[in-house]
């Protein structure tokens, strides 16, 4: 690609200093998101996917902190910015959509006031102009009767409608990147489908890059262009979504896809990955997945899996699935 990616993350490492040890919830993560592209970050709880999102937007709570690596937004390095510069970037450059729409809206301000305030802070427009645009923004996210409802407070909206408002708010300052952290987890299936469609349409129309953090493989399959599968803080697999989901190379991705009930249709038992994700304080030596992996060999118990760069390599695995037939025979 000749364009600079909207978001570029290089070898990002986040550490938490605790009483007993130094934990690494994010370990050597690299990826790019191009204009108009949706990157799905998927993983189970504790995989470090939300922490990665928070690190990118500079919203890590102490004692978690970035200890190495770089984050570039449109070619400009942002992980070294001061908190106040970072706040500016969060308004104009990066929009955010979180799991719980209630916590991202101020309950004491009307929806309109919040939209107008955000827009005027970042765009040189007048009050009446901003109000017009706010109505338009609400109409765009599919809120019926936007002109009347703009003066309502967040609690007057249902869960799905609130998430629409949050999306309007995230997009109103026309950011080049949106980070959506489990945006549909709290919603019902029918509403989830609406929100996903909306998010995808808006971002495609505006060319916004999206980092979509979720645990739901189905959502990723339908929404994302690229997917990063995370396990115990590291990227296990990174690649185009169709490739990764239909022909997974990392045994963890394979297991994850296989354990979805749909994958075992007509069978009495689901395929399962044995064991649990290790706690960060008790990572096994070598590849963190090896105790649960049926392909594990001596190398896996000794060495960390290969580190994935943003643009090359697919699976952080010494013996990727389908690489050679011999690897399979050994397993």
């Amino acid at each position: 690609m000749t364009d600079t990616p909207v978001l570029s993350v290089r070898n990002l490492v986040v550490e938490i200093q605790t009483r007993h040890a130094v934990l690494r919830p994010v370990d050597n993560v690299s990826f790019d998101i191009a204009r108009g592209e949706i990157l799905g970050v998927v993983g189970e709880s504790g995989a470090g996917k939300s922490m990665t999102g928070n690190a990118v937007i500079g919203l890590l709570d102490r004692p978690a902190q970035i200890v190495s690596g770089e984050v570039y937004l449109n070619g400009r390095r942002i992980d070294t910015l001061s908190p106040s510069d970072m706040r500016k970037i969060r308004g104009t450059g990066i929009g955010m959509v979180f799991q719980d729409p209630l916590t991202s809206l101020n309950p004491l301000l009307t929806v309109g006031e919040q939209l107008i305030e955000t827009m005027r802070e970042h765009l040189p427009i007048s009050q009446s102009e901003a109000r017009e645009r706010a109505v338009k923004a609400l109409e765009e996210v599919g809120i019926p009767g936007a002109r009347e409802r703009i003066d309502s407070y967040p609690h007057a909206f249902s869960g799905g409608m609130r998430q629409r408002v949050v999306i309007a708010l995230a997009l109103c300052a026309e950011p080049s990147l949106v980070i959506a952290d489990e945006p549909t987890t709290a919603l019902d299936v029918s509403v989830q489908a609406q929100i996903i469609t909306l998010l995808r349409r808006l971002c495609r129309d505006r060319g916004t890059a999206v980092m979509l953090v979720t645990h739901d493989m189905g959502v990723i399959a339908e929404t994302a262009d690229k997917v990063a599968v995370m396990y115990a803080g590291r990227t296990a697999e990174l690649g185009p979504v169709r490739e990764v989901l239909t022909r997974p190379r990392h045994p963890y991705t394979e297991g994850l896809m296989g354990s979805a009930p749909l994958a075992s249709l007509g069978q009495t038992r689901l395929r399962q990955i044995p064991g649990n994700m290790p706690r960060l304080g008790a990572l096994p030596q070598g590849c963190a997945f090896h105790p649960r992996c049926n392909r594990a060999q001596t190398a896996c118990r000794r060495d960390l899996g290969p580190t994935l760069a943003a643009d090359e390599g697919r699976a952080a695995c010494w013996f990727p699935v389908g690489a050679t037939e011999t690897a399979k025979d050994i397993a």
Partner: peptide, 24 residues
Amino acid sequence: KMLLEAAPKLDGFGRETEPPTGEI
């Protein structure tokens, strides 16, 4: 029928369907 169509599919890459309307 609506529930079945709205549920995300693991093989629904780039699926473009009209999402269900309305809420509960």
